[in-house]
């Protein structure tokens, strides 16, 4: 009994860690660019694939991939923003959503074409293999690592945004980009870098996820729907909101799996519907 519960809660915590990392990037991008980045799931997949390919073809290990894959995918994001996305800011936000949705389909389609639908496994790095028996449950070391790193990365991002000078630019740009630019800040450049950074965060989550989930072309599309629910519940663009909601919803999902497994796929959306009814701006969102 307690074994099953704690097992599901751990799975929930792991999923929640990824929700938090991914919705953090989404929230940062939405805040400054007003773009609902539908390619976020595909960029997460790209991170996992870059890590897998780097290991497979170049022999680059997990630790290097954890640094290099986000940089590579983030650079791609930067290029995409500069070539395409930035031309849509003056139009209705719907256009940005459609463009990123299209990019997600193209990315996922090409990877399916090249690598097939079945997954590739990525080995757990040697240092993090094995685990501890707590008596009531077995605690794999890699999963502890994932939770700790996700929480640390989320907290560091929150600190950076809320407490530093760089973060004050991001907050000001989220509120009133035109005025920030009129003060002499290069807002167009900031938007590009922010998009690249958010995409890099997605790729980082992808590398972290590679040893846990299968590396498959559709790994992102299965997570993106939940992700948008997380962002809506947390409040669009709220940084702390998306982190807390991500972790919280992972746990709720895990708990539901234990209580009544068939409902676990919909529980997130039930919560979303309730939150939208009671607090349309989200739990942590400001009314716009």
């Amino acid at each position: 009994m307690i074994q099953a519960l704690s097992g599901q809660l751990l799975v929930g915590l792991i999923n929640g860690s990824f929700y938090a990392l991914l919705s953090l990037g989404l929230a940062i991008i939405f805040g400054l660019l007003d773009v609902v980045n539908f390619a976020h799931g595909a960029q997460y997949m790209l991170g996992a694939f870059v890590a897998w390919m780097a290991l497979q073809y170049l022999g680059i290990n997990y630790w290097w991939a954890l640094i290099l894959a986000p940089l590579a995918v983030g650079a791609l994001g930067l290029g995409f923003e500069w070539l395409m996305l930035r031309h849509l800011y003056r139009l209705d936000p719907l256009y940005g959503l459609l463009l990123t949705f299209g990019v997600a389909l193209v990315l996922e389609g090409s990877f399916q074409n090249a690598f097939g639908i079945s997954g590739n496994s990525y080995p757990v790095p040697g240092l993090l293999q094995g685990g501890t028996n707590l008596g009531f449950m077995y605690l794999p070391r890699y999963r502890v690592w994932v939770v700790l790193v996700s929480v640390a990365v989320c907290f560091a991002n929150w600190l950076m945004i809320e407490k530093t000078r760089l973060g004050s630019y991001l907050r000001a740009g989220t509120e009133n980009p035109a005025l920030l630019q009129a003060f002499g800040v290069n807002v167009p450049l900031m938007r590009g870098l922010t998009y690249g950074y958010g995409v890099g965060l997605a790729a980082f989550a992808g590398v972290m996820a590679a040893p846990i989930y299968q590396v498959t072309p559709l790994m992102g599309s299965s997570v993106i729907m939940v992700l948008f629910a997380v962002v809506v519940i947390g409040g669009m663009g709220s940084i702390a909101g998306s982190i807390v909601t991500g972790l919280g919803l992972g746990l709720i999902e895990g708990l539901t799996k234990f209580l009544y497994a068939p409902a676990s796929d919909v529980v997130v959306f039930v919560v979303m519907a309730l939150v939208l009814l009671l607090r349309p701006a989200g739990l942590f969102g400001r009314q716009r």
């Binding site: 000078r165 004050s168 630019y169 000001a172 509120e175 009133n176 003060f183 002499g184 800040v185």
Partner: peptide, 17 residues
């Protein structure tokens, strides 16, 4: 006036480069 709500008074003050 254009005071940023999510910034403290001093952050507002030191924001413009």
């Amino acid at each position: 006036r254009g005071i940023f709500a999510s910034l403290s008074a001093e952050e507002n003050l030191t924001l413009p480069p």
